[in-house]
Amino acid sequence: MSFDDVYRKYYKELRRFGRQLNISAEKCEDLTQETFMKFYVGINKGVIFNNPRAWLYKVYLNQFKTTCNSREYDIGSEANSMKADNHSEDALEEYSKKEKRRIVFEMLDRLTDKEKAILILYNHGLSYAEMAEVLEINPNSVGTTLVRAIERLKETLKIHYNEMFEQN
């Protein structure tokens, strides 16, 4: 698969991953470009990528950890920046979405970084082997980590956000 193919295929996915980690849109764009830059340099140096998808996620996550120690939350400011006199249905719907998004981030922040990342990666449809590579954990422990993260998420939902989500 050529660089262009990989870029076209995974750009949006990576950007979405960043936004789900609650990185600001601008920073998210930068991280995505930097990740692909490293991939491009790797290809030019003759590095063979057996699984470009997992590699991109791993580099992205590592860059996020190193460069975004003080996380850039922009969700709250987005929601608050809406004009008070703008009460049209679309605006209210938009506001509602942003508010829900803010609550989801607040809830996910109650989990550890690894738990949060594994849930997002699982939602993105990565295989256990890919998740193990991204999170740099033993492939045999992915199932355990995932189930623990699910249990923690459910517990958090039950305690703090019972009204928002119907418990199953």
């Binding site: 660089f3 262009d4 870029y7 076209r8 750009y11 949006k12 950007r15 979405r16 936004r19 789900q20 609650n22 849109a25 764009e29 470009q33 692909f36 491009y40 829900k100 998004r101 989801v104 981030f105 809830m107 996910l108 849930l119 997002i120 699982y122 939602n123 699910i150 998420l153 459910k154 939902l157 989500f165 199953n168």
Partner: peptide
């Protein structure tokens, strides 16, 4: 449930085109 929760954290930015590298 994971799909629902994580899905709620999505933005409407998917419509943004992929920029040139």
């Amino acid at each position: 449930l994971i799909g629902k929760v994580i899905g709620m954290s999505d933005t409407t930015e998917d419509s943004i085109p992929v920029p040139e590298f």
